[in-house]
């Protein structure tokens, strides 16, 4: 399940389709689970007539959560040390997102919480048009 240092090489990538044809219902499901009921995400009437958007759009944190699925499936359960992202474009209903992690480096950990090696990953999530919706980085413990 976990990654091993010797299996990793700089430039290696791992990709996954993390949502196919995002539904408004999944956005509402995320609102309910996270507690963020901002009507720009959940209320078509408000989003279009009051806020001036073409339709509702996904919470940035839903995109980060979807991308996190690719990330934890790649590095293994409970292995993440850091996960950070920038939201670079909005995600709309109907979008299909592909999340990719690229190995930037494999380093020794700090010797305390980070016993053993650590992989540093660059993250990018793109929509069906190839537009990047999220970029970020992560660090995770790997086996020696």
């Amino acid at each position: 399940m976990a990654l091993t240092k010797s299996e990793l090489s700089v430039g290696q990538t791992h990709s996954a389709v993390v949502v196919d044809n995002l539904s408004r219902t999944q956005i509402v499901q995320y609102a309910g689970a996270s507690g963020d009921y901002n009507p720009v995400h959940t209320d078509e009437v408000f989003a279009t007539k009051v806020a001036g958007y073409p339709t509702v759009f996904a919470h940035g944190m839903l995109t980060m959560g979807l991308t996190g699925t690719m990330l934890t499936n790649f590095v293994g359960d409970g292995r993440l040390l850091d996960y950070g992202v920038r939201f670079t474009s909005q995600v709309w209903p109907g979008d299909t997102l592909t999340a990719t992690a690229t190995v930037v480096a494999v380093e020794e950990g700090d010797g305390e919480q980070e016993e053993g090696p650590v992989v540093i990953l660059a993250l990018s999530t793109t929509n069906q048009e190839g537009r990047e919706v999220l970029s970020g980085e992560a660090r995770a413990r790997v086996d020696a």
Binding site: V50, A51, G60, D82, G84
Partner: peptide, 26 residues
């Protein structure tokens, strides 16, 4: 009010630009 609200981005608290987590344990 409506114009003010339209101008403020997501109309409620602005937009989320970045998020970073540092995990000490699960």
């Amino acid at each position: 009010d409506a114009k003010q609200e339209k101008k403020s981005g997501a109309a409620a608290g602005g937009l989320h630009a970045e998020q970073h987590f540092h995990y000490h344990r699960s």
